[in-house]
Amino acid sequence: MEVVDPQQLGMFTEGELMSVGMDTFIHRIDSTEVIYQPRRKRAKLIGKYLMGDLLGEGSYGKVKEVLDSETLCRRAVKILKKKKLRRIPNGEANVKKEIQLLRRLRHKNVIQLVDVLYNEEKQKMYMVMEYCVCGMQEMLDSVPEKRFPVCQAHGYFCQLIDGLEYLHSQGIVHKDIKPGNLLLTTGGTLKISDLGVAEALHPFAADDTCRTSQGSPAFQPPEIANGLDTFSGFKVDIWSAGVTLYNITTGLYPFEGDNIYKLFENIGKGSYAIPGDCGPPLSDLLKGMLEYEPAKRFSIRQIRQHSWFRKKHPPAEAPVPIPPSPDTKDRWRSMTVVPYLEDLHGADEDEDLFDIEDDIIYTQDFTVPGQVPEEEASHNGQRRGLPKAVCMNGTEAAQLSTKSRAEGRAPNPARKACSASSKIRRLSACKQQ
């Protein structure tokens, strides 16, 4: 084909351009004929944790799935940006308080904090938690009735009371019990989460009196709706648990309003109706937990002794299953770290194939690490110290990083047969305790 000078094309009309061969290198194709290559998922490591896909996002930050490269346990990490926390009232204080509380709590029905990582340079905090497959609110939203069968609701409620009793025994008032803060594992274990607005009572406090509340409006008791200066913290949790039980068994809320002012007005009056299909035992329990006067409201001991709580409820309806993943529609909620794991395991070791967030990740503290002497050669063979940054567990980050890069360049065919977990650990520049 004859090559045409581009400067001469402006002298031709459209018809003349076609005659000189423009149609031979300008093609129009339908979008259905285009085959897009999927974007390669680059592996990203935060300390010893391999990052997966997004699980959810809230006002405080994002939650992603991660894999512990040492234990191969599935975890969830809450990623918090200090810049964003400053824009939220009491944001930083709530996060630090939640970390302090979770560090000393150990119960099967309370979410466990596994690790805390802090990135000084990017001003990011990573709260590594045990993995929960789904939230209770997500399960309720997945069915038209917006409720659980009585047998399933009873099982979840009993676990909620177990976890709540443990928190109260530790002198902690949750203040925000609701389905949105109750998570579930694949085995059906309920976990109380989000202790950001919780309050730890003084060890020598005479009672459970509280003065502040930041919980969700629909789950607040009349004493808070009416603006009382002080109130019983434990009875606030009992009320919120009662509203939660009402919601998961009926699909409704005892109090509603077009806006928060109308909602608080209705809560302050204390008038509500219980659907007739709840039955006398459940209705009596709800009335005891939603008692207007805090002094007359049920205690956890009274809830445990109630006939509806103690009764064994046979399954009359099919239980609400864990819904498919909202993004991938995966009904099994498979591990989202698998594509990243395959990338590390299947590809040659190259620095361009993975990302390490930083050479140094500070753990379990908000301060910069200490310094240790770096050896410097002298005339008599002895070495003197220069400062060298280290990880919180004493690992020399720069030395590990250099060693990792040197190993990656060394030709050794046997290394390709290593397991995925050992490869992740070798790529991680800074081991965590």
Rank of each mutant, 00 (worst) to 15 (best):
V3W: 05
V3I: 06
P6L: 06
Q7D: 10
L9S: 11
L9Y: 14
G15D: 15
M18Y: 11
M18P: 15
M18C: 05
F25C: 15
H27Y: 09
H27V: 06
D30T: 15
S31M: 04
S31H: 00
E33M: 12
V34I: 07
V34A: 06
I35P: 15
Y36A: 03
Q37P: 08
P38D: 15
P38M: 07
R39L: 12
L45N: 05
L50T: 09
M51L: 04
M51Q: 15
D53A: 06
D53G: 03
L54N: 15
L54Y: 12
G56Q: 00
Y60N: 03
G61C: 07
V63C: 11
V66P: 01
V66A: 11
L67T: 02
D68Y: 00
E70S: 05
C73Y: 02
R75L: 04
A76I: 11
A76C: 10
A76V: 06
V77I: 11
K78C: 01
K78Y: 00
K78D: 00
K78F: 01
I79Q: 13
I79L: 02
K81Y: 09
K83E: 12
K84L: 15
L85G: 01
L85W: 08
P89V: 03
E92S: 05
V95N: 15
K96S: 07
K96T: 06
E98H: 03
Q100E: 09
Q100G: 08
L101R: 09
L102A: 04
L102Y: 08
L105S: 10
R106Y: 15
H107M: 02
I111S: 02
Q112A: 09
V116P: 05
L117Q: 10
Y118K: 03
E121L: 12
Y131V: 04
C132H: 08
G135E: 12
E138C: 02
L140P: 00
L140C: 02
D141G: 08
S142W: 02
V143N: 15
E145F: 05
K146S: 10
F148S: 00
F148W: 02
V150W: 03
C151L: 02
Q152P: 01
A153L: 01
A153V: 02
A153D: 00
Q159G: 07
Q159Y: 06
I161W: 00
I161G: 01
E165M: 01
Y166W: 04
L167C: 07
S169W: 09
S169V: 02
Q170K: 03
I172W: 02
K175F: 06
D176P: 00
D176R: 00
I177F: 02
L182V: 05
L183E: 01
L183P: 01
G188P: 11
G188Y: 15
T189Y: 03
L190V: 06
K191G: 03
L195D: 15
E199P: 04
P203R: 06
F204L: 08
F204V: 09
C210E: 01
T212L: 06
Q214D: 10
Q214G: 14
A218R: 05
A218M: 10
A218S: 07
F219Y: 09
F219Q: 14
Q220L: 03
P222N: 15
E223D: 05
E223T: 01
N226K: 04
G227R: 03
D229H: 02
D229T: 15
T230F: 05
S232C: 08
G233Q: 15
D237E: 05
D237H: 13
W239P: 00
W239I: 00
W239L: 01
T244A: 03
T244P: 00
N247M: 03
N247K: 04
F255Y: 09
E256D: 15
I260S: 12
K262W: 06
K262A: 09
L263I: 14
L263T: 08
N266G: 02
N266L: 03
K269G: 12
A273T: 12
A273I: 12
A273F: 06
I274R: 04
D277S: 05
C278Q: 03
G279R: 04
P280F: 06
P281F: 09
L282A: 04
S283F: 03
L286V: 07
L286I: 10
L286P: 00
L286A: 01
K287L: 04
G288H: 15
G288F: 02
M289W: 00
E293I: 08
E293A: 06
R297L: 00
S299F: 02
I300L: 09
R301G: 12
Q302R: 13
I303N: 13
I303F: 02
Q305C: 09
W308F: 06
K312A: 09
K312T: 12
H313E: 11
P314V: 08
P314Y: 05
E317R: 14
A318M: 03
P321H: 08
S325D: 07
S325P: 13
P326S: 10
T328V: 10
K329F: 08
D330M: 14
R331D: 09
R331E: 07
R333S: 14
S334M: 06
T336N: 04
V337D: 08
V338S: 14
L341F: 03
E342M: 12
D343P: 10
L344S: 12
G346L: 11
A347W: 14
E349F: 06
D350M: 15
D350T: 12
F354C: 03
F354M: 13
I356R: 08
I356G: 12
D359A: 11
I361S: 12
T363A: 04
T363G: 14
Q364D: 04
F366E: 14
T367W: 11
G370D: 09
G370E: 11
G370P: 14
Q371S: 10
P373Q: 13
P373D: 14
E374K: 12
E375W: 13
E375P: 13
E376T: 13
E376H: 05
N380V: 07
N380Y: 07
G381W: 06
Q382L: 10
L386V: 06
L386P: 03
L386H: 05
P387F: 07
K388T: 11
K388D: 10
C391H: 12
G394H: 15
A397S: 09
A398I: 07
A398M: 15
Q399D: 11
Q399Y: 11
L400R: 11
S404M: 14
G408F: 09
G408V: 08
R409D: 07
R409V: 09
A410P: 01
N412C: 07
P413G: 14
P413H: 15
A414D: 05
A414S: 14
R415V: 14
R415W: 12
K416W: 03
A417T: 13
A417C: 09
K423C: 14
I424F: 06
R426A: 02
S428F: 15
A429E: 13
C430V: 06
